[in-house]
Write a protein that binds this DNA or RNA. Structure first.
Length: 1001
RNA sequence: GGGCGUUUAGCUCAGUUGGCUAGAGUACUACAUUGACAUUGUAGGGGUCACUGGUUCAAAUCCAGUAACGCCCACCA
């Protein structure tokens, strides 16, 4: 006696149970020694800054569907999990935490080692949380291989890559403007700045043009001045040019001339640069201060001859070498610089103006653009035999080695790489992979020092270099040069490091690498590269990368580049870009807006399977998808749509329209009123998945209730009754279509296919039909076999549900399937993906479709006349002998599903006098409505139907009367139209006859 | 400013290479209730396919333009 199932599916119990079971069985542990073509996915490592959000849920669901599906297909699968150290974001989070604990927290005083240790603590906590959430979502990762971008394995790959690139001349040190916090004396990332409108000034000055005089000068000839405006007068000390637009007629004659910078006496040129100067703005002339303004800096890179001059000390005072201004704070310097211009009569005007000024988030002081040493990777083409890195990555895609899905994203990738901009890889942080380069910071003084540096150390270095332990530029005695850089292959190589640091000649660079540097190595660092591991040999290159489009450039392009450079092979064959989630108003979901959705709320409310189904169903090929968010009232459970004005924590309290009680809208913010209950968040998009899970649950429940005496036996398909052949064929078609959908990353279609097959065809029709065949052994076998197939097909999307039902089915019918039953696998995770193409049989489809049409017609009449279901109807169907034979074979189902008392089929069937009817090309069905019929209403309906058909016929006749249609359209289409017209004309005839008798009453 | 995308039922979205009366889910309406399932069943109503023009025998679909919205990148003396 099979187990009786509860009435509804309880996702929570199932989730806990199967996570444990799968883990114990080790289904997701990859073994390179096992057979099967490899299928590998590396997870886009989530940042260890916090919890997983809905975007992760989407991303990971896509990956898990692919991995579970491929595993069932017999691939040797590996889904590599892990997390990202996310340099800036993580360090900022931890620093904010420390600042909250102690208002006087200062990074420098706290110290590098202590801070890094603190961040590790944070990492351990949140990594565990993230991995836990990943498990809860059902992710079939191989958690035994979990990596972290800052762990020892990944660090090795980082060191090796940096060393090679340094050695090969791709990595170089250069200057770049950074956001400088003069109070904390540190650079800050763009993320750590905010812009605030500040009262400032807009000054206009003039510089004297050398050797020119005004055209309208008096006899003596007065000097010619050129005017420009600025909001930061103090930077005039660092001016190295004035700039005008090349096509600006006012200044044509001055391009190439020079002016005097009055404070410094420097002679600086007037240059033309179309990108910097805008003739429409101000005077059309602009000063150029490359060291203190990003645009001017860019201008300098285009005109390097003008030079670049830094005027600031790290504390924001004016640097030495600027006379009376040196040592002044930048604000005092500004006043002094302006005063000087007034004194010289070269001050024209000052207007008060509100200026958007960048501030440091940490110290709340204005940011200074500050020139500093940075590390870069050169992307450009090279003169030597070595490849240009950008080109390597471009070729990987243009050659088709890497394919994008949807294709259009290849353009994003190629456009960005085409610029071949160098990649700045250094970050002024402590959390990350520290740059393994030592710089010579002093020259030898004493004889002893000289002997050491130029003698013993240099000799040792040459030796180490030949051993590949260090890399540096060759020359007779490089150590005699001023700045000298040594890249150390292994920072733990104490021979080298101790030797360099002895006497303090060398200091290690304090910067760390951009977090994307280690992320770029992820597809092979996780597999153990540079070691030649079994994993690397088996699972690289990986198969598919699933990610979002905003990191195509930051991440995808760089992985390809690094894979090609380090291993000479692309890191993945396919890149699937999934859509981005938006809220109900088309705005990107984000923490600051508070319009996000917590996957854990969704899981709790609807279950993991429902969440996964929702994610799959939503993943179409568009680039954005909307997910309207609702608050669930914590008192009564009412669902209240989130409105735009609730965002950004603008609404701190909401009243439930149903129970009138107050609550706090759900969101990422901490509560400021512990009394006020916080709403969970929901979205009705997940109800479909929950309902679907329940539908499958109950279908299984029904089948198991009717399985008494089940025996497995081979099924001879051709000998099966129509309805059995039909459902088997439909299952086969569905399986085939799902395979194709998944191969093309059409997750929404895959979800729709299994949903429609299960709900509409299997539950609404086949199971209903099976009720007329109680305990028919063949029917039992088909029910069991189709359910088995459904569970396999749905497993990648809804694994917990599938596994739960699989276990029940296993108990009741271990041996199952068709055409030849076999003992099923112990878990649906390792069951074979259905490949039933041989069972696809189109010929039965038409008969069942006709039968469905007939039943639907009867139901429609029943509804129209409000005939209650219990009342049996008399059915007469006028049709060809062939169709009559089909209907006769299916008669039990027609009788059952239509609620029929007697049914007559055939060409000579005589319809009752008082009848309601349905007419189509294959049959005319009539139901006896004696005593019920409303002749006038029925006549009116018939008239409308005739009119509708006439309209169609008219449109088609129009086409057929059009010579160019008959001439140009495909002949088979024309023939089809003609046939259709004839068909419809026939229907009109029947309907008119009916109308006549209706009118006659 | 540059690039990419979107606009189809009240809402969220399908609609393949142009070709029968444009579909689904949800919401809505009516009816149904101890027989797997109300997280249900049966049936029904609901669309100027953003707008303008063009190509074509034929346009939701192809082309051009307009508008609104979204995302990415660049930039704002």
């Amino acid at each position: 006696m099979p187990t009786e199932l509860p009435k509804t599916y309880e996702p929570k119990d199932a989730q806990a149970k199967w996570l444990k079971f799968w883990d114990e069985k080790g289904y997701f542990r990859a073994d390179p020694a096992k057979p099967g073509d490899p299928y590998t996915i590396v997870i886009p490592p989530p940042n260890v800054t916090g919890a997983l959000h809905m975007g992760h849920a989407l991303n990971n669901t896509m990956q898990d569907i692919l991995v579970r599906w491929r595993r069932m297909q017999g691939f040797n699968t590996l889904w590599m999990p892990g997390t990202d150290h996310a340099g800036i974001a993580t360090q900022a989070v931890v620093e904010r935490l420390l600042l909250a604990e102690d208002k006087n927290f200062k990074r420098r005083e706290y110290g590098r080692e202590a801070l890094v240790a603190k961040i590790w603590e944070w990492k351990d906590k949140y990594e565990a949380r993230i991995l836990g959430q990943l498990r809860e979502m059902g992710a079939s990762c191989d958690f035994s291989r979990t990596r972290f971008t800052l762990d020892a394995t990944c660090a090795k790959a980082v060191r090796e890559t940096f060393f090679r690139m340094f050695r090969d001349g791709y990595i170089y040190r250069g200057k770049r403007l950074v956001n400088w916090d003069t109070q904390l004396q540190t650079s800050v990332s763009d993320d750590e700045t905010y812009t605030e409108t500040t009262k400032g000034g807009f000054w206009t000055f003039q510089y004297e043009v050398i050797g020119e005089s005004t055209p309208t000068a008096d006899a003596a000839g007065s000097p010619l001045f050129i005017q420009f405006s600025t909001t930061r007068p103090e930077t005039m000390l660092g001016d190295t040019a004035l700039c005008v637009h090349p096509s600006d007629e006012r200044y044509q004659h001055l391009i190439g001339k020079s002016v005097t910078q009055p404070h410094t006496g420097r002679i600086i040129p007037i240059i033309a640069d179309g990108q910097l100067a805008d003739p429409e703005l101000g005077t059309g002339c602009v000063k150029v201060t490359p060291a203190h303004d990003p645009n001017d800096y860019a201008c300098w890179t285009r005109h390097p001859e003008i030079g670049i001059i830094n005027i600031l000390n790290p504390d924001g005072t004016i640097a030495a070498g600027f006379g009376e201004y040196s040592g002044l704070d930048r604000t005092k310097a500004r006043a002094a610089v302006v005063a000087k211009m007034e004194e010289l009569g070269q001050f024209i005007d000052k207007q008060d103006r509100d200026i958007p000024l960048p501030y440091s988030d940490r110290s709340k002081t204005p940011i200074e653009p500050f020139l500093s040493d940075q590390w870069f990777i050169s992307m450009a083409d090279r003169d030597d035999s070595k490849p240009g890195l950008a080109q390597l990555a471009i070729d990987a895609v243009t050659s088709g080695k890497v394919k994008f899905f949807p294709e259009r994203y290849a353009k994003t990738y190629l456009d960005w790489l085409g610029e071949k901009r160098d990649w700045c890889i250094s970050r002024q942080l402590w959390w990350g992979h520290r740059i393994p380069v030592w710089t010579k910071v002093k020259t030898a003084q004493s004889d002893e020092e000289k002997a050491w540096l130029h003698g013993s150390l240099f000799e040792a270095m040459q030796e180490w270099k030949s051993q590949g332990r260090v890399s540096y530029r060759d020359s007779a005695d490089p150590f005699s040069e001023g700045q000298f850089l040594v890249c150390v292959q292994d920072e733990a190589d104490s021979d080298v490091v101790d030797a360099m640091e002895k006497y303090g000649f060398f200091e290690r660079d304090s910067d760390v690498l951009d977090t994307w540097f280690s992320s770029a190595l992820w597809p092979f660092s996780t597999l153990g590269w540079p070691e030649q591991t079994a994993d690397l040999a088996r699972y690289y290159p990986t198969s598919t990368l699933c990610t979002s489009r905003d990191i195509i450039t930051l991440w995808v392009a760089r992985m390809v580049l690094m894979g090609e450079y380090n291993l000479g092979e692309v890191p993945f064959r396919q890149v699937y870009i999934h859509p981005a989630l938006q809220d109900g108003f088309g705005e990107r979901m984000s923490k600051t807006k508070g319009n996000g959705l917590d996957p854990l709320d969704i899981i709790e409310l609807y279950g993991t399977d429902a969440m996964r189904y929702g994610m799959a169903a939503i993943a179409t090929e568009t680039q954005d998808i909307r997910l309207p968010v609702m608050n669930v009232c914590p008192h009564c459970g009412a669902q209240i749509p989130v409105k735009q004005e609730h965002m950004y924590m603008r609404t701190k309290k909401l009243a439930c329209p149903q129970c009138k009680q107050n609550f706090r809208p759900g969101g990422p913010w901490p509560s400021d009123d512990p009394e006020l209950k916080t709403a969970k968040q929901a979205s009705d998009r997940f109800e479909v998945g929950r309902n679907f899970a329940n539908k499958m649950w109950n279908a299984t429940r029904f089948i198991l209730m009717n399985l008494d005496g089940y025996t497995p036996a081979p099924l001879v398909i051709v000998e099966l009754p129509t309805e059995d052949r039909w459902i088997v064929s439909r299952l086969a078609t569905t399986a085939s279509a799902m395979t194709a959908a998944l191969e093309n990353f059409k997750f929404a279609e895959a979800a729709r296919l299994i949903y429609e097959f299960t709900w509409t065809e299997f539950c609404d029709w086949y199971i209903e039909m099976s009720k007329a065949r109680r305990s028919d052994p063949t029917c039992q076998r088909v029910l069991v076999g189709v359910l088995d197939g459904i569970l396999r097909l749905v497993h990648p999307i809804m694994p917990f549900l599938a596994e739960t039902l699989w276990e029940y089915l296993h108990e009741a019918a271990t041996v199952r399937g068709f055409p030849t039953p076999a003992e099923a696998e112990e878990s649906v995770c390792i069951a074979r993906w259905p490949e039933l193409d041989a069972l696809i049989d189109d010929s039965t489809e038409t008969s069942i479709a006709r039968m469905q049409e007939l039943v639907r017609g009867v139901r429609e009449i029943r509804n129209r006349y409000q005939v209650e279901d219990k009342a049996k109807l008399e059915l007469v169907v006028k049709c060809s002998a062939d169709v009559a034979a089909e209907f006769t074979a299916l008669q039990p189902f027609i009788v059952q599903l239509g609620g029929i008392s007697t049914a007559t089929f055939g060409p000579d069937a005589v319809k009752p006098k008082q009848a309601g009817g349905v007419v189509n090309e294959a049959f005319e069905a009539s139901v006896n409505l004696e005593g019920l019929i409303d002749f006038a209403a029925e006549a009116k309906r018939t008239e409308k139907q005739i009119a509708d058909i006439r309209k169609q016929v008219g449109a088609m006749q129009g086409k057929l009367n059009n010579d160019s249609y008959v001439k140009n359209a495909p002949p088979e289409l024309v023939a089809e139209t003609k046939a259709k017209v004839a068909e419809l004309e026939k229907q009109i005839g029947t309907l008119q006859a009916n109308l006549k008798s209706l009118l006659a009453g």
